[in-house]
């Protein structure tokens, strides 16, 4: 009876170990799978940023977006120049009846030979500046980088 009890006790300990091991492996696999599943690709990251930019919100109160960086795909509708700086009116893909003003400074990287009617990808940051009279100029989307589509 006693031996039978010992054997039975050893068999029970080994069973618990396996259970824990399997459970651990499963948990680890699930964690890895989840992490892999949740890790975005670089293209998917640009698309997600673009979706989150709301031109309606921008028209209401752009200064709330100050510091945010967005990648926007848009068609150049109009260009106003002052020296090497340009203010570009861009129509977004999903809202062709709207125009978004983008300030392209001379130091913006990427392809900067903007032409009217062509579609580009703009990496922009919402900035606040000031005039010569120190009057604030809020919520201006300044282009950091321009890429062709």
């Amino acid at each position: 009876m006693a031996r039978r009890s010992k054997r039975r006790g050893r068999r029970n300990n080994a069973s618990h170990m396996n259970t824990y091991l399997i459970g651990g492996i499963v948990v680890a696999a699930v964690v890895i799978a989840g992490a892999v599943a949740l890790k975005p690709a670089p293209e998917e990251q640009v698309a997600a940023t673009h979706r989150h930019f709301s031109i309606a919100d921008y028209r209401q109160d752009a200064s709330r977006l100050t510091g945010n960086v967005y990648r926007l795909e848009g068609r150049v509708e109009n260009i106003e120049s002052l020296g090497n700086d340009r203010l570009v009116a861009v129509s977004l893909e999903d809202n062709p009846l709207e125009r978004l003003p983008l300030l392209v400074r001379s130091g913006a990287s990427g392809r900067i030979n903007l032409t009217r009617g062509d579609v580009f990808i703009f990496e922009v940051e919402c900035c606040t500046g000031h005039t010569a009279e120190q009057k604030e100029v809020k919520g201006v989307l300044m282009v950091r980088r321009v890429e062709t589509k």
Binding site: I55, Y58, R59, Q60, D61, A62, S63, A89, L97, E98, R99, L100, P101, C126, K135, E136, V137, K138, G139, V140, L141
Partner: peptide
């Protein structure tokens, strides 16, 4: 927006009106 110095927003709204 122009009154609030939100010139980016103001310009976007003028664009919209122009459209």
């Amino acid at each position: 927006c122009e009154k609030r110095d939100e010139l980016g927003s103001a310009l976007a709204n003028y664009y919209r009106a122009q459209c």
